[in-house]
Structure formats: C-alpha cells, structure tokens
Amino acid sequence: MTMATFQIWRGDAKGGALKDYTTKVSDGMVVLDAVHQIQAEQANDLAVRWNCKAGKCGSCSAEVNGHPRLMCMTRLNQIDITKPVTIEPMRTFPSIKDLVTDVSWNFRAKKTITRFKPRTPDAPDGTWRMQQVDIERVQEFRKCIECFLCQDVCHVLRDHQLFDEFAGPRHMVYAAALEMNPIDTEDRVSDLKKAHGIGYCNITKCCTKVCPESITITDNAIIPLKERVVDQFYDPVRKLFRMFQP
C-alpha cells in the first residue's frame, strides 16, 4: 500500500497554517479523493467545496503544489507524491475556512455587466435563425464552468487586488459571449473600458494557461474586446501617427 502526505492549509480569515495528513493512496486517485479520505478519517470538519467530481461544476478549485487546479481533475500520478503535496485555497480571494474562500465578489461583478437583450424574433416561426459557424466562438466562451481559477491567477486581482476596477478574465469571457452573440442588441464596449477596466489586462495569458475548459481567454475573448474598445475610443489616425514616432 502506498502512503502519501498532504499538507493542507487549515485556518480562516484570522490566519492559518499547513497541516500534515498522511493517508493511503490507490490507483487512479485524484487530489479531491485524498482530501475526502482525510476528511472522513482524520478531520471531519475540514472545509472543502465540491459537487460533481467530474470537472463540470467548477467548485473544487484550489492551489495544488502552488498550481491553480480543479482538485477533481488532478490525478495523483500527475504530481510527485514522494514529497508532501501542498493543497491551499485560492489565494486571491478572502479565506472563509480551510480550502473554502469567499468568491462572492465574482457574483456581484457579474451582475454589473449589461444583460443579454435579443433583437425581436425575425424568423417566420417566431424564433431566430443562427448559423453554427456564427455561434461557435460564443460556444467556446459558454463552456466556462465558473471555477474562478482565471480570476485566482490574474495578477491584476491577485497581486494588486483591483477588484473595484477590473472585472477579471472570467467576466471578460462573459462579456465577450454577450458581445459576440449574433442576436444580442446591447453595447458593452464603453463599460468594458471604464467600469470593467479591460485596459488593466496586459495579456500575460496566465488565465488561458489555467483554464480547465481550455478556453482561449486572452486571444479569443479579451483581445477582440480590446480591439472594440480601441475602435470606439481611440482615433485610428492618431494611433497610426503615434506608431511612427520614436
């Protein structure tokens, strides 16, 4: 039987520390299995969020050996278990307890983005016609499971804590899905520039790297939105002029 040691962060908003738990591990186990086993056998009150255990709900986000991951999709054979494995909560958000963080800011931020408003149905049967090719890029964004790992890794939020000024990658993806929806009638470009701070993103692509749904956040969502902001707010002639200045 193989044993492995997990250093799990225990604590709350007032502070905490990594605590060692050694437990047996078996074939095919994921990090969340180890956490559950420890919870059932050694620490009944160990707080952890999870739901589907199949990478579909985005609840069990944490930092495993420092990497933002879904615990349910991180197999133990992908990490080195000969050394203690650290499991910490998402550090960008305030701690509630153990591996559970206060992600409520995300729900508030989403509400500030202008909601979907379709044009009047224009097909004879009272619905809309949309071509598959026109919706595929939106469908990529709608794969988002709201695990908030992209928010966790974004330096604007993580290091600079600019929660009031920048809505974060998740909500750029959300806004992009709305903006690129072929039947939507709203314009969110001005909000993206001002209220949602799209200019703070300097395209380091960390969010894209951690996305468990492999959404190309930076290239497909944020950059096209930045282009729309540029089109609407920055005079192209002057921009061209600036490009040729030393």
Binding site: F116, P118, Q131, Q132, I135
Partner: peptide, 16 residues
C-alpha cells in the same frame, strides 16, 4: 434561447 442559450444549429439555422 430568448434568454441567451446557444443550442447547436441545423444547416438552416434552427435548433439542432
């Protein structure tokens, strides 16, 4: 669909 759902489409643009 009127609330924003994006179902896969038929070749003539209806819900597949």
């Amino acid at each position: 669909e009127g609330w924003g759902a994006m179902f896969d489409r038929t070749p003539d643009g209806r819900i597949l």
